[in-house]
Design a protein around this nucleic acid. Structure first.
Lengths: 199, 199
DNA sequence: TTTACATTTCAGTAAGGACAGAACATATCG
DNA sequence: CGATATGTTCTGTCCTTACTGAAATGTAAA
């Protein structure tokens, strides 16, 4: 079980990336390894490939399975558990988004709601703070709501959305709401009609 | 300089959130504090409020300024530097996105390009790995390109985009490209015409 | 220029998290 | 029932990073 140079570089980089996003390095490396490997690997192989302890691999795998980006697979006639990553990038992305929403956005909304209520008790002295907290709350709610809609889209629909950034600009990019430009000019309709898979 | 309970809770939570996103706790706390405080604060006040050392505050402020979410302000007749955060949430969000793109997406694209080239040298044995890396690269490129478009939008336009998630579903949510549903049915046009600030 | 105040940098320390190895648990087969 | 293989959990250690306090640097008034 020796990694090719390309795989090795990717695994290392993914580990760094993980850290920048608050994810344990080994965990990110295990994920990267499984992502680029055609067959499901057992813990021993992962341990050897990344040169980390079995226990560390075990913990990382548990976490990755909890996140939903890795799953356990069994091969008949082999007692060992094997593991494989979600192989579809967009799907992986979605799963991670869903999990982060659940873990971070939802509790943040709850906390902000609490803080806003509490800040109201303070009267005028806390007015500014309350306003800011309310704005933040509104923003997080807005993003969460948006996410809720986007999450309903199929992978292919999501891809269309991503590939049509320029159309989004046309659709939403008039200067000031209702003042500068009509939202439904022929241009916009054309933009919708010409939705294409490429930029 | 004593924090209200609401501000305190927010600051602490923001610190935790920061960690989950790979941001130093103190740094996130300083940002949270400045965000909910009406006036610009000097380093001493921040240090006292958060109960961390002056030097730690200094470092955190430097970082926050580098990120572009905090700026130095001067008050005539006072030698002390004071600091205030961007007060607009959406603007703050944009600045952070831009910085993360620069720091993480761009280098990731560069690395993936390199890896793909290298994996091609491996011939058929690395075929699968190369495919996966290519898919990942394509995804990151797609998101980056999309971001590039979205970033051109004004704050108000961005807000419209976020508040119209359901329209996006209508616009992009047909099942399979070109097969299941025409992209520009009357429904879609209506969806564009009725863009509204609220869900 | 000196003094007082502010800020930054730096070196050592402390805290937290990652990690290895051992112990434990479970399961399969002789 | 051992014996062997596999998987998990736990404990202590190590490493990284955050952090402090002190020293150095900078700056503005006296």
């Amino acid at each position: 079980m020796i990694l090719t140079p390309a795989a090795k570089k990717f695994v290392l980089h993914w580990g760094e990336m993980g850290q920048a996003w608050g994810i344990n390095r080994t965990m990110a490396q295990v994920h990267a390894l499984l992502f680029v490997t055609p067959e499901a690997l057992d813990a021993e192989e992962i341990s050897k490939s990344l040169d980390v302890s079995r226990s560390n691999v075990s913990t990382s795998l548990r976490e990755l399975i909890t996140w939903g980006v890795v799953r356990r697979v069994h091969i008949i006639g082999d007692r060992r558990d094997r593991f494989e990553a979600l192989k579809d990038v967009m799907e992986t992305f979605r799963v991670i988004m869903a999990e982060r929403k659940r873990r971070e956005m939802d509790p943040t909304i709850a906390l902000l709601e609490h803080c806003v209520v509490e800040a109201k008790l303070g009267g005028t002295s806390e007015e500014y703070t309350r306003d800011q907290l309310e704005k933040m709350l509104e923003f997080v709610r807005m993003v969460t709501l948006w996410y809720g809609h986007i999450d309903r889209l199929s992978t292919s629909a999501l891809e269309r959305l991503f590939r049509n950034g320029s159309r989004l600009v046309k659709l939403f990019g008039w200067i000031s709401p209702g003042q500068d430009r009509d939202p439904a000019t022929p241009d916009d309709v054309e933009a919708v009609e010409s939705l294409q898979p490429n930029e």
